[in-house]
Structure formats: C-alpha cells, structure tokens
Design a binder for these strands. Structure first.
Lengths: 133, 133
DNA sequence: CCCTAATGATACTATATTAGTATCATTAGT
DNA sequence: ACTAATGATACTAATATAGTATCATTAGGG
C-alpha cells in the first residue's frame, strides 16, 4: 500500500528543484538532467501543475516553469489531491444496509478519525518545510 | 485512495458474522446469503484466512468456518497485511541518491511518523472492539 | 457404501490504476 | 525563419483489484 504515488513523488522533487534554483523559468530539460525522471512523463506532470496554478509556464526559447505561489502555500496534500484524487480512506467500506446489527459504524468512525489526523499532518508538509534545513 | 480494499472489507464483515453467530462452523453458504458478497470470491477469502490461522475450517457435511483465535486477538491490521501487503506508506519515495542536497529525508521522517500513528490506531481496532456495543 | 454438503486448490477473465511513451501543434526569443 | 521551449492528446505496458469457474478432497448420514 502506498500513500504517495509516483506522480506526486516526481512533482515534489521537481518543485523542490525549481524552488531551490533561484532562476525563475527552469526548463524541463534541466529537471530531466538533474533528477532521475523519464522525460515525457515529467513534462506531463509539470503541465498539470501549471493547469492547477501551482506553476507558471513560459513558452518559447528561454521559457520554462516557475512557482506560482510562495513555498509556504504549496503543501503535499495539494499535490496528492491533484495526482491521486480525494483522500477518502474509508470510501468503499460498509455502504449502508450491510451488517446493520453490529455497530460497524464504529469502524467507519475510527477510520474517519485516522483520516483526519493524516490529512492534517500532510497539510503541514509544505515546500517551505521541506526546503528549510 | 483507499486505505482498505475490498478483500479486507469482506473479511471484516465475514469475521464479524462468524463471531456473532454463536454456532461454530458457519458454512460459506450462510455468509453468502446474509452478507452481500459474491460467492466464489468470499470462499477464496475465507480459505486465505484459514491458511493464515485466523479461521479454522471443517470439511464435509456440517462443516464450515470458526474463529481460530479470541476476538481480542484479531485486529484490522492483520487483515490488511494479509490482503494488502505490508503497509509501507513511504515505500517508493526518494530512494537514496535523488535530491541529496535538499533535506528530503525530512519528508521521509514525517511520513514515517504518520505511518507509525496510523499503524497503532489500526492495531487497536480488533474484532472485539467492533462487536461490543 | 454411496450420496451430498461442505472446503481445498488452482487457473482464468475483466476492469481500473499506475507508469511510461510518442507525436504534433503552438509560442516566443534571436 | 530557426530553434528551444511548452500545450495537447493519444497511445502502450505493467500491476493491482475484483470477480468467475472448475475439479479435487473430505466427512457425515442414510
């Protein structure tokens, strides 16, 4: 079971790199060279981040990507939502009418609680947090 | 993203049912009728639970399944491990040598911490807990 | 001793998610 | 006009999840 899938992983790495390189407009070709990520795949990820307004993009020669928000406002949870969909840990479980006798809702409540805690932890993991040493 | 997949879900329901029905030796045919679970699929799940020594099985006429342990000793986390593999939330992330400069290990540490908390919560969810009202 | 109701074991199909590739169009600086 | 960049989109491959089908084996009961 994975909490974080590859797209999110790559996104974090790329964003860290872009944030660190003081140059704005980092072209994908750099990232491909520096990080260890298959090219076209990374491009698609950055395109999505652009659509979601986490990155700005500049076309043409000398173009590239730059952060669209301050590092404090980019959180792991945003990236996970984008690439992995909403985080509903208890989604498929015990949809009504099953086991109505036993207090199964106890399970759902527990999972809900776990989910809330996980979400708040993830919300706290921002780019700024990851970058400060 | 799901924390609990269908096999685990079905396993929980079946175990609750078996635990509640004071009869030992509950045949699969009962469970299929009572719960809402596709037959052959459920059988396979119970067979696995038997192999993992969470259920006992009795062949032949009048046979069926019964709990192999007290309800306190069957925890959600056992079932998840069986059906979903080891729960390593940070598994695929930042395997060495990538981004060695930035303190990415901060991310790993955070995720590890989250993982520990989730695991301990899950460990506390036993059959006994789910059944007591 | 045979019939039948049960599990054991295994192999197969279908669907969804994740991972990765390929291609062509568009933009903008030189 | 050339070139270095992104935009958009369609495709393939691998893996995980969900579900089905089949035949063998066991054990109780007439």
């Amino acid at each position: 079971m994975k909490l974080i899938i590859r797209d999110t992983d790559y996104a974090v790495r790329a964003l860290c790199f872009i944030a660190k390189s003081k140059k704005n407009r980092v072209p994908v070709s750099w990232l491909i060279r520096e990080l260890n990520i298959p090219g076209p795949f990374l491009r698609r990820i950055l395109q999505v981040l652009n659509q979601k307004e986490i990155l700005n993009s500049y076309k043409g020669q000398g173009g590239g990507f730059s952060l669209a928000k301050p590092e404090e406002e980019i959180s792991l949870i945003d990236l996970m939502k984008i690439f992995q969909g909403p985080i509903k840990l208890n989604e498929c479980l015990f949809k009504k009418k099953i086991c109505p006798n036993i207090k199964v809702c106890k399970l759902k409540k527990k999972i809900d609680k776990i989910e809330k805690r996980v979400l708040s932890e993830l919300r706290g993991i921002t780019l700024a947090y990851l970058l400060k040493k």
